[in-house]
Simulated scan of single mutants.
Amino acid sequence: MSRPIPAQARAKPLAHPLLHPAVRPTLHLLCALPLAWLISALFTQQLGANPAEALIRSLGDWALRGLLLTLSITPARVLLGQPLLLRYRRLFGLWSFAYALLHLLAYAVFDQGLLLGEILRDIAKRPFILVGMLTFALLLPLAATSFQAAQRWLGGRRWQRLHQLVYPALLLACLHFWWMREAKNRLAEPAVYALIALLLLGWRFSRSSRPRS
């Protein structure tokens, strides 16, 4: 007569890979790698003849890439049937904001000497700087209210409405990038990012416009 298998010896169902405790630290590390490389390249003089400009623009590039990645999470969740992907959307969003903040600080310090008057004159003189500032102004309340305490305080519906500001922020970020590169006739990369942004926004619009059963 066979003995019953002890409960602790029974095979346990495998946890989903996205629930592994190493996933979140790994994603944080991957998001931090571009920043680590830029800091290293700055101090080892690998950013070219104009390191300040290279640093400012690279930080902005990674902010836009992070924003596109953040907005890709929901379509990926739906198309791949992986609802657990939503656990990491805030992570990517906050990293995108961090790069945007560093982009702004690097511009203010290295390009304008942290002089408010010079920054205001530059905003009035160059439209793409104005658009960049508007983009940051839209991202700021999203980052400030990205935590669960803010969501509870605002209520789910108001929180969702507020976070729809990410859509105009994405369009303004693409316009900022386009105008910046247009001066040097380097539009291939901005065109790719703009196309991705339009696809993401088009996907959301098509889903929101479907009649509910």
Rank of each mutant, 00 (worst) to 15 (best):
V192K: 12
P34L: 03
P25F: 00
L201S: 14
V23Q: 04
A143C: 11
P6L: 05
A9W: 06
L64M: 05
H103F: 02
R65F: 10
F43S: 06
L140S: 09
R121H: 03
S208P: 12
L134K: 00
A22C: 11
M133G: 05
Q160E: 15
E118T: 01
R204N: 12
I129Y: 00
V78A: 14
L165Q: 10
L165I: 12
G132M: 05
L69Y: 11
L38S: 05
I196S: 08
L114I: 01
Q82L: 14
Q164P: 08
K12L: 06
R65G: 14
H16K: 08
L114E: 00
R87E: 09
S72D: 09
R152G: 03
L59A: 06
L154Y: 06
R87A: 13
I196C: 12
W203T: 13
E182P: 01
L199Y: 10
L38Q: 11
L130D: 02
L38K: 04
A49K: 02
I73K: 04
A143S: 14
L165C: 13
L30T: 03
V23R: 02
L134W: 01
L64V: 04
S72W: 02
W178C: 01
R210A: 15
I39Q: 05
R89I: 01
C31T: 03
A137S: 10
F177H: 14
L55T: 14
L35K: 10
R210K: 15
R24D: 07
S206R: 15
V131C: 00
A36P: 10
P17G: 09
G155S: 01
S72L: 10
S72C: 10
R77D: 13
L130N: 01
R210C: 08
R212L: 14
P51R: 00
W159H: 09
G93T: 10
L134E: 03
L18K: 08
F43C: 06
L200Y: 15
R158K: 13
A149C: 05
L29M: 11
F97N: 08
V78R: 15
A9G: 02
L172T: 08
A36D: 06
P4S: 09
R212Y: 12
L101Q: 04
T70G: 13
G132F: 05
S58A: 10
Q8T: 09
M133H: 04
N185H: 04
L199D: 13
H20Q: 07
C31I: 00
P6Y: 07
